[in-house]
Design a protein around this nucleic acid. Structure first.
Length: 419
RNA sequence: GGAGAGAUGGCUGAGCGGUUGAAAGCACCGGUCUUGAAAACCGGCAAAGGGGCAACUCUUUCCUGGGUUCGAAUCCCAGUCUCUCCGCCA
């Protein structure tokens, strides 16, 4: 959520900045709503002040007048609330503004490669796709999932299920023991206001799985990423400065409708309605967002280094970034079957954008309150890591070597072979 | 599913129609004392929004939404959430 005061003071800059996101706003409409809103507030407050005086005076002669004032206040308040609501509706669906070093561009074609790491494997045979490998091993079963559930789901079986669990455990261990994150096992369902806090609502409702709960309670949603629930741990909270930075890690299933990606990655488990992801979240003092973003990105790439998977780091263009982000690094892992890099992690700084929505703040020593900065990143997507291992560690007979780093998590198994 | 109890500032917790934005304690900040620290003592310390260059000032907020009243944290109604006990259950 943007600060209306900032918009008021720098309306042109605000309008121009949003153009980087290819959004053209009617700034005059916003300013007009804001102005009228404040006018009504002033009217209301002066009446309230008058009413308060009367009530304090306990002068019976004036009581009648007070009653009339109350009616006026009510009618102004109705107008004012309506106005404020339409202003909020507009503001809450505007994305965060990209930082200055973010490349401007409409989509992923404008993303810029920052660095490359690892060696791309050289096969003396034609490398197979992860789904070929998995199906040949009888350890990935897409048809079975179609039968029980529907498309874009998968059964992972036997040693691949073990591998999936090992990946998750390995990543968490590294983030907890080496990177200073605190492990969390959170709820996988979030309330409407929680979804609003991180920016999934109101604009992206179509991407979310809503749960049919008790009619009476708040709307509930399956989390599309642990970012939602971890970041919202700071919702409506005022942190002590010493509590920051707060670094959290969770391995959770994520649920996404993937509306609008029909026909994209239909084969295999690249794009599923349900997948595991190890998520990193940092809550920091605002001025530390950028250093924390670098730190977080390094925590993610460290996993790939340890797994000896080749990857590259890119900075997302303004048009490709998520709604709440001000700057995003994607990490892409090499997939031999596609002969290209594919996203395996996305690390974003959201500045105070989410904090404003959530009302997540901290107090410094002078008792000043500030909004916190929030960051999130995958460390890493477990399903896609599984894919990357299958493809990069495959052998000509279709068996899969186990990366050294994972062996301790797999009873020292060193190869997955067909039974 | 049945029966109760509750929701107040960063935290704990009083208040149950008017000088209560809210006692007290903790935490935190400043000061006195001390070589330094601790202890003790003194003082300060909510958030959001509006107006003002500023000093400052006004309004709102005691779970949420309605109602009663000149006036509500306090009374009434509805809702949400939390806790305890019983039942059921991973």
């Amino acid at each position: 959520m943007h600060n209306i005061k900032d918009i008021r003071n720098n309306s042109n800059l605000f309008k121009e900045s949003l153009k980087k996101r290819f959004i053209d706003i009617d700034i005059n409409e916003i300013l007009k709503l804001d102005e009228n809103n404040r006018k009504l507030i002033q009217e209301k407050e002066s009446l309230e002040s008058e009413k308060k005086q009367i009530s304090k005076s306990k002068n019976k002669e004036l009581f009648k007048k007070s009653k009339i004032i109350s009616e006026k206040i009510d009618s102004i308040e109705i107008k004012q609330k309506k106005l404020k609501a339409s202003l909020d509706t507009i503001l809450s669906s505007l994305p965060n503004i990209p930082l200055n070093d973010v490349p401007v561009g409409k989509d992923e074609s404008s993303n810029v490669e920052v660095s490359k790491s690892g060696t791309i494997p050289n096969f003396n045979f034609k490398p197979k796709s992860h789904f070929e490998l998995g199906e040949k091993l009888n350890m990935l079963d897409f048809e079975l999932a179609t039968k029980t559930t529907g498309s874009r789901f998968v059964f992972v079986k036997d040693k691949l299920a073990l591998l999936e669990r090992a990946i998750s455990n390995f990543m968490i261990e590294v983030h907890v023991n080496q990177n200073g994150y605190q492990e969390i096992s959170p709820p996988l369902i979030a309330s409407e206001s929680t979804m609003y806090g991180t920016g999934q609502l109101p604009k992206f409702e179509n991407d979310q799985f809503e749960i049919k709960f008790d009619e009476k309670t708040d709307r509930k949603f399956l989390i599309p990423t642990a970012e939602v629930i971890l970041t919202n741990m700071g919702k409506n909270k005022i942190f002590h400065q010493e509590e920051l930075p707060l670094r959290l890690v969770a391995s959770t299933p994520c649920f996404r409708k993937e509306a609008g990606s029909y026909g994209k990655d239909t084969k295999g488990m690249i794009r599923q309605h349900q997948f595991y992801k190890v998520e990193l979240v940092s809550i920091v003092e605002q001025e530390n967002c950028l250093s924390e973003l670098d730190r977080m990105t390094n925590c993610a790439t460290k996993i790939l280094d340890m797994l000896k998977l080749p990857y590259r780091k890119i900075i997302l263009s303004s048009g490709d970034m998520g709604f709440s982000a001000e700057k995003t690094f994607d990490i892409e892992v090499w997939l031999p079957s596609e002969n290209k890099y594919r996203e395996i992690s996305s690390c974003s700084s959201c500045g105070t954008f989410q904090a404003r929505r959530m009302k997540a703040r901290y107090k410094n020593k002078n008792k000043d309150t500030f909004f916190v900065g929030t960051l999130n990143g995958s460390g890493l997507a477990v399903g896609r890591t599984l894919i990357a291992i299958l493809e990069n560690y495959q052998e000509s007979d279709g068996s899969i070597k186990i990366p050294d780093a994972l062996k301790p998590y797999m009873n020292n198994l060193d190869k997955i072979v067909k039974k």
